[in-house]
Nucleic acid binder design. Structure first.
Lengths: 227, 227
DNA sequence: GCCGTCCTTGACGGAACTCTGACGCCGGAG
DNA sequence: CTCCGGCGTCAGAGTTCCGTCAAGGACGGC
């Protein structure tokens, strides 16, 4: 869940933000002065900070600098000041965005989403979906199958078939569904394709292809992949 | 130097931006419609994009989507519309910031700086910029390839291709993805380009280009770089 | 304006992949 | 027991895909 730190000394603004954020399933911490804010930021490691510049104890820009000393967490500044100088100062101190009050909640939330989004790691990052069995390992993102210390090469069709089965691990996948997902929507009766490629997969992946443990045939219905 | 792509159909705004940006030592490209913009973005690889939503040929949000299909470059949207919906739509489509006209040049430049700053890699980042294999060494940051005691010369396209593959070490990269990342989003079927340049890379880097160990072909799917 | 570098394009042989038909096995029904 | 439908296996034909080469064109530097 995304964690937001709201820093503002006006209770009604904090309340409005907290309600709206929680309704959208954010986890929210709130601070009403700079010192508490810096402390909370360190303790709670938020994914994004919403900061009002007008705080009772210290200048908002100092809070930005305090955060930027050790973290690159996105900072979204709120302020009643419309002056260009203020904005420039805050942005150059390390803020990511600057919204003037009064602000629209929709807009603020959209800017928040944008800030969170770009701080996320690239979707094709190292978080690979890996499926493990006793005999082999499937990495769906890298399109890799590892077995007995070496990589197994699969043809496009074999991959596609394996992918559909693995995504439905433990579930029965009907022959029609397999044919349509791998060969296209106009297929559905060419069960011989399935027999050929299922045999291929078993030969490449099963310890004993004649007695498959992972690619199970359900006669008359379809196939099932089991870990 | 930081490269900016300005997309706007109003000549006076483009002029003002170009003058101000160049004075601050940015490198600037300009496009006055969406199609040119997408093409330029692919060709010039800007570090940040300034996009006016009101374009003659296509919806600005479409331009955002077109860019986001293949790049995470920061996009700063300009618009005459103050409506909250417009902002939310643009931001959720993938824009990083939204500035309403008329805007102050100082503020815009500050937002630009903020956008560029946060897209910069972490100074002391742990991302190992150097990739080692048995035969050669790739230094992504220095854009250098070392092999057998000497530097290997690569053309821009060869380098770009190598970069995409190395950044996805071990993962299969589809031909479409390679084409789009190296040649631009409008490419996707010109697999002969890939064949030619993959051969170049192999000739320059593999010990035995006819039997590549590092640049592996996965027929019908794509290529994979292995250490 | 010339030259070198780089990118694009087309053609071709060979390799890899998909499709297809034939055959045998097995279990259940008649 | 025999027949039959569903499944697994195999190998060959046809097609697609890939590596390689060479020529033409665009671009920038001298």
């Amino acid at each position: 869940m995304t964690r937001v730190l709201v820093i503002d000394d006006e209770p009604q603004i904090v309340r409005a933000l907290v309600i709206n954020l929680k309704a959208r399933h954010y986890e929210v911490d709130a601070a009403h002065d700079g010192a508490t804010a810096l402390q909370l930021a360190a303790a709670r490691q938020p994914d994004v900070v919403v900061l009002d510049l007008g705080l009772p104890d210290m200048d908002g820009v100092e809070v930005i600098r305090g955060l930027r000393g050790w973290t690159r967490v996105p900072i979204l500044v709120l302020s009643a000041r419309h002056s260009s100088d203020e904005k420039v100062e805050a942005l150059d101190a390390g803020a990511d965005d600057y919204v003037t009050k009064p602000f629209g909640m929709d807009e603020l939330l959209a800017r928040l989403r944008a800030a969170v989004r770009r701080s996320e790691p690239v979707p094709g990052g190292e978080d690979d979906v890996i499926v493990d069995t006793a005999e082999f390992t499937v990495d769906l993102a890298a399109k890799k199958v590892h077995r007995g210390g070496r990589d197994v090469r699969l043809t496009p069709t074999e991959w596609h078939l394996l992918e559909v089965l693995v995504r439905n691990t433990g579930r029965l996948v009907s022959q029609k569904q397999l044919l349509q997902e791998v060969w296209g929507p106009s297929y559905g009766t060419e069960t011989n394709y399935l027999r050929v490629y299922m045999a291929q997969l078993r030969r490449k992946l099963e310890a004993d292809p004649a007695h498959p443990r992972h690619f199970v045939t359900e006669p008359g219905m379809g196939y099932r992949f089991e870990k």
